[in-house]
């Protein structure tokens, strides 16, 4: 079908909880599928983001791959949306910002209880960790923010239906939560 809104989603340093919450729109996803065409998203398994109208970003930026993916989304999406606490302020992964990266890796891969063949992973295929975890607005321009951990399904629904309906997206008080 022509003229469908093209939508891409990804999870960077997130837990996929926001994606699970999107799926919590339940049977409304059939209605959504009438209105949007999914591009890159874990739902389609398309690997790269094409030209899109809307990109939803879950999670903050913790490694070099996150940086590339985020920039690909920004380059290809007319509207970029930070979804959930981690995309907005780094969230739980950013708790490591208070501990030097080397100490984090040592604790996880060398000193942790039950570790065998202790070594810090260094396969060249692995993206390098950044010194700190960043909210996405520190790297790219972000057009909209959907707070919550995760934002509930109605937040996604209200935002997307507003946008698709040509209205300025707005959330009523009961849909604004940071937890």
């Amino acid at each position: 079908m022509a003229n469908k809104i093209r939508l891409a989603t990804t999870s960077l340093a997130g837990c996929f909880g926001c994606h699970m919450s999107l799926l919590d729109i339940d049977e409304r996803i059939l209605e959504l599928a009438e209105l949007v065409e999914f591009n890159r998203t874990p739902i389609t398994d398309i690997k790269h983001c094409g030209d899109c109208d809307v990109g939803l970003i879950e999670g903050g930026v913790c490694n070099s791959e996150n940086v590339h993916v985020l920039r690909e989304f920004r380059g290809n999406c007319k509207i970029l949306v930070a979804v959930g606490a981690c995309a907005i302020n780094g969230g739980l992964p950013a708790m490591r910002n208070f501990i030097p990266l080397g100490e984090c890796l040592k604790e996880a891969y060398i000193d942790a209880i039950g570790v065998e063949n202790a070594q810090i992973p260094s396969d060249p295929e692995l993206p390098l960790l950044l010194e700190n975890v960043h909210p996405i607005h520190e790297l790219v321009k972000v057009d909209y923010f959907l707070p919550g951990c995760p934002p509930c399904a109605d937040v996604f629904w209200k935002f997307l239906t507003d946008l698709i309906g040509g209205r300025e997206p707005s959330l009523p008080y009961e849909l604004i939560h940071y937890d």
Partner: peptide
């Protein structure tokens, strides 16, 4: 109440 949806500024951590 102020409909703050993001932190806008870089975080200090």
């Amino acid at each position: 109440y102020l409909q703050m949806l993001d932190d806008h500024f870089p975080l200090f951590f």
